[in-house]
Amino acid sequence: MSSSGSSSSQSPPNMASISDVSALFQTAKKYEELNVIGTGAYGTVYKARDLHNGGQIVAMKKVKVALTEDGIPLSTLREIALLRQLEAYRHPNIVRLLDVCHGGQSMERDHQLVLFLVFEHVEQDLDSYLKRAPGPLSENRIRNMSYDILSGVDFLHSHRIVHRDLKPHNLLVTSSGRVKLADFGLAKTYDTEMKLTSVVVTLWYRPPEVLLGVPYNTAVDVWSSGCVLAQLHSRAPLLQGGCDSEQLHCIFRLLGRPARHEWPESAAIPVDSFPDYPPRDLAALLPRAHPQALRLIQGMLVFDPAKRLTALDCLEHPYFTEEPLT
């Protein structure tokens, strides 16, 4: 137990203001930062030691929140409340959120508050897992990982959370090979924060509706998961565009250019700006994949978000139900 906090002296503390008391909190340091694990577009993740829990290793995400005239923004509080609430379910495919704290007075600059979200530390993400794999993954492993990812996505969707940025980098792989989703639920907090402009955001998992700048919903995560599932088979990203328009070209080279009536009215670019690509056979790109796996991925990579499978549809797909998962 920490000995910081209020003193136990006999006389009542003679306080000028509450700010004097808040200074006491800085001494209650609970985590020791070890090294940087990753720098995302919205802040840094550290590997750290939990000094109150036998030195347990944790992943600590630092998020800077701009304080408003009325303190911490409502949207940030709502998002943290929801993340905390989700944690009560202890879903096996969601990274554990262990603690939330803030940096206290001394770390505030220009009306900023530094928030620390403390997560369980998972040694590996799917990106490095796939890069380190000595050869193709077994069909069984692919099927289990695919199911894990979709279970996590379905769980978020059932709590009205859209991940928005699913990719191998924020899918964590535990030592027993289970996949857990990380880095979600703070979209509105991020929006109010200054982006680190130097960080390049990958477009490879982005669905056409986002690239075209039209409204989107939970179906975006199904698209991104579809791209990841394909990558489990080939160990290489399926659609590698260098910029927004190049990414759209990649997509249409695979799916074929959408029919005119499918093109969203509010799209930023007209359909004619793309050549009339014919659709390609996914089986040619993923020659090792099981036919049901191909059917599932095809159902996920559909141009029209309304016609895409939902995460729940995916979980009930014959790819998973024809043979029991092991």
Binding site: S22, F25, I80, A81, R84, G104, L113
Partner: peptide, 17 residues
């Protein structure tokens, strides 16, 4: 109150719901 808000959040461990 603003200062106290941060102390309160830390104390209730951001368990807001």
């Amino acid at each position: 109150v603003m200062t106290l808000e941060r102390i309160l959040l830390q104390t209730i461990k951001f368990d807001l719901q």
